[in-house]
C-alpha cells in the first residue's frame, strides 16, 4: 500500500552482458595491453573514504537514536551531541512498555506481515506461472492490465475501504489491516518475469506426457523452479507490510501494528525523546536482524529487479 515495493522497470529486457568472470579475463594475455587503463584497477583511498563516509552517514542516525535512547533526555541539551550510549536503556524501554501495548503490537505486525506475505507470494506464483507458461485466451491483454495497474496508486482507495470495513464491523481487527494487501500486481509481474525464462517448456511437456495434470505440474515443476524468486518476493512483501503506516493507522488505531504503536509514543502531552527513540530502536531491531540474515538476498533482489525488469 505504501508503494515501497519498487524494483520494477517497465522497459523491455535489454540484452544483459554475458556472464564473464573477472578471472577469465586475465589469463589470455589480453590484459597486457590493458594494463594501466584503469578499468579493473583496484580503486584508491579516495573511493574507500567516500564509501566510509556513506556508511557513517547511513548508520549515524541509527547510532544516535541508540545513544539518546539509552540516556536521559537531558543529553539533548548538551553542547556536543554525546557519542557513547548511556546506561538508561532499560529504564526507557520500561517506559515504552508502559506507554504503548508493545508486545501486542509486535504480535499484530508479525501476524499481518506473515499472512500478507504468504498470500501475495502464493497467488503471485500461481498467476505468474499461468502468464509465463500457459496458453490461454486473453493472456496478453490481461498481462498488460496487470502491468498497467502497477502504476495505479491503490492507496488512494482508503475512504471506500474504510466505509466497507466499518459497515462489516471489522475496524480494529487484524483482518481489516490485512485485506487490502492480499495481492499485488507487482508480485504477479515479478513472478512472471522470473518464470518465463527459468522453466523450459520441454519440462512442462515432459511432465504432461508422464500423465501429470495441471496442478501437479505446477506443484512439481514450477514451484521448485520458482523458489529463489519466491524468497525475494517474500522478503520485499514482508518489508512492505511491516513498514505500512497509513492504512493500519486509519482502520485499527485501537489495536495497532508496531508502526502505529510507535507513532503513538509521540502523541503524548509531554514527549520524552529518550523514550521515543528507545522505542524506535526496539522497532528497528527485527528488521535489522532480518537484514543481517538476508541482506545479500535483499541486495540481489533489488539488483535483479533492475536488470530483469
Amino acid at each position: 500500500m505504501t508503494g515501497t515495493l519498487t524494483p520494477t522497470p517497465t522497459e523491455p529486457v535489454r540484452p544483459a552482458r554475458p556472464v564473464k568472470l573477472r578471472a577469465e579475463k586475465n589469463p589470455a594475455g589480453r590484459m597486457k595491453g590493458h594494463k594501466g587503463l584503469g578499468i579493473d584497477r583496484r580503486p584508491g583511498f579516495l573511493t574507500y573514504g567516500i564509501l566510509l563516509a556513506l556508511f557513517l552517514g547511513g548508520a549515524y542516525p541509527l547510532w544516535w537514536s541508540v545513544v539518546v535512547g539509552s540516556s536521559s533526555s537531558s543529553v539533548l541539551s548538551q553542547e556536543w551531541p554525546p557519542l557513547l550510549p548511556g546506561g538508561q536503556f532499560w529504564i526507557n524501554v520500561a517506559a515504552v512498555f508502559d506507554t504503548i501495548p508493545f508486545w501486542q503490537a509486535l504480535l499484530n505486525s508479525v501476524v499481518v506481515s506473515t499472512i500478507i506475505t504468504v498470500s501475495v507470494v502464493s497467488f503471485s506464483t500461481l498467476a505468474g506461472y499461468a502468464f509465463a507458461k500457459l496458453r490461454f485466451r486473453g493472456s496478453n491483454g490481461l498481462m498488460v492490465f496487470v502491468v498497467g495497474t502497477m502504476a495505479i496508486p491503490t492507496q488512494l482507495g482508503i475512504i471506500p475501504l474504510f466505509i466497507l470495513m466499518r459497515q462489516f464491523g471489522w475496524t480494529g481487527s487484524v483482518g481489516a489491516i490485512i485485506i487490502p494487501t492480499l495481492v499485488t500486481a507487482f508480485g504477479v509481474f515479478f513472478m512472471r518475469q522470473y518464470l518465463v525464462d527459468v522453466i523450459p517448456d520441454e519440462l512442462i511437456e515432459a511432465a504432461r506426457v508422464d500423465g501429470a495434470n495441471m496442478i501437479t505440474t505446477f506443484w512439481n515443476v514450477a514451484v521448485p523452479a520458482a523458489r529463489p524468486a519466491m524468497a525475494i518476493l517474500s522478503l520485499f512483501t514482508f518489508m512492505m507490510a511491516w513498514t505500512d503506516f497509513l492504512w493500519p493507522m486509519i482502520v485499527s488505531p485501537q489495536n495497532p501494528t508496531l508502526q502505529v504503536a510507535l507513532s503513538q509514543l509521540q502523541s503524548a502531552k509531554y514527549v520524552d525523546y529518550s523514550v521515543v527513540l528507545a522505542g524506535a530502536v526496539l522497532a528497528t531491531l527485527p528488521l535489522l536482524i532480518l537484514f543481517v540474515l538476508a541482506g545479500k538476498q535483499l541486495i540481489s533482489g533489488i539488483m535483479a529487479g533492475a536488470v530483469k525488469g
Binding site: P61, L62, Q259, L277, L287
Partner: peptide, 10 residues
C-alpha cells in the same frame, strides 16, 4: 531497513 515511522521519529 529503518521503517518510515522510526525515520520520522529520529
Amino acid at each position: 531497513v529503518v521503517t518510515p515511522v522510526a525515520v520520522a521519529l529520529i
